[in-house]
Design a binder for these strands. Structure first.
Lengths: 189, 189
DNA sequence: GTCTATAACACGATAGAC
DNA sequence: GTCTATCGTGTTATAGAC
């Protein structure tokens, strides 16, 4: 575990504030106050507000891409791959709850890196849908609407950042298992 | 169908812009440009930017409260009530896709009406959870974690505004049925 | 109902002292 | 590494002409 630099501290504090009010509503003065310093002092560690947003979002997006690549290269069943995706979201979100809020809500405020982010997101969704379609072909998954299935799963997983902080008693493994069961097997008797 | 006033036109245009960039990132100049007028002219129809946000969010929140009250007063089964909740979200979101984005993402920028909004939201979630708990007691719903069930369903339903505009071929009734099946019966064979 | 002009203030970012 | 002071610009909103 590398020790946290002052720049990391700024980025983590910013992520917390961005979660509460969104990127546009958080000023550099807000961020400085939360750090206990003056706004001008922030610029000794970072070059711009935009750089902070980029640092938060792109690193997480690349984590998802990397995790998805491992999953699609495995030879597990489609259902098992979906369970791995649930676990991937639970793990990344548990480790960076605040950053996930920016990824979900403030990606459109990326400037230089917007196209790159959208590319990663589109690839991720295409891989996700591919797994579901495989599962339908293999009769592991019901032959209903694959896009509705992906939409339902992915929006639930993307919203985990809102919910994990309230449920600290559930560890990541248990949460992943419970959530997989609800998403895959449904809720009715 | 009452005819659209200039004020309604401003509110609807604002909702569209708020969906794209969020309340804080949309300026009165942006809004005026989208309307084809100058920023100062907006103030002949509305009193403040805040008033626009309030008009968008509170009316939708009250629609949900009203719909939920009808559902809990019915004597349907718990599963049937959940299907009605899905239909409620599909209907409201279909009729006001842009406004749903503000409800989900910009409620924290409400000033005077923030407490009222939070009260409506908390009551809605409590009623939702109550229906699930009833279903568990009546053995209609699996005895797993009711909060995870609510979280999963509600976050999917709250994200419908992102998805409905892309799927104009599906009408509200079909979408509601397909989504109910995925959420209630799961996806596996 | 829309315009031009502008008030009053907040914003991101920089310069230079310590 | 943090500060004070400030630049240039953008922000919501108002005043008053047409």
């Amino acid at each position: 575990m590398k020790q946290e630099t002052r720049k990391d501290e700024i980025i983590n504090t910013a992520a917390k504030l961005f979660k509460e009010k969104g990127y546009s509503a958080v000023t550099m003065r807000d961020l400085a106050t939360a750090m206990g310093i003056k706004a001008a002092s922030l610029y000794n560690h970072i070059n711009s507000k935009q750089e902070i947003l980029k640092a938060i979002i792109i690193s997480i997006a690349e984590e998802f891409t990397s995790g998805m690549n491992s999953i699609i290269q495995s030879e597990a069943s489609s259902i098992s791959k979906l369970e791995s995706i649930v676990a991937l979201h639970v793990n990344i979100t548990s480790n960076n709850t605040n950053g996930m809020a920016s990824l979900n809500n403030d990606w459109m405020h990326l400037e230089d890196q917007l196209d790159y982010y959208l590319q990663l997101r589109n690839e991720y969704e295409a891989n996700f849908l591919g797994i579901i379609n495989e599962g339908v072909t293999a009769s592991e998954i019901k032959n209903s609407n694959p896009e509705i299935i992906m939409f339902s799963m992915l929006t639930t997983l993307r919203s985990l950042y809102l919910w994990i902080p309230k449920k600290e008693d559930l560890n990541a493994k248990n949460l992943g298992q419970s959530l997989s069961e609800v998403l895959i097997s449904g809720i009715n008797n």
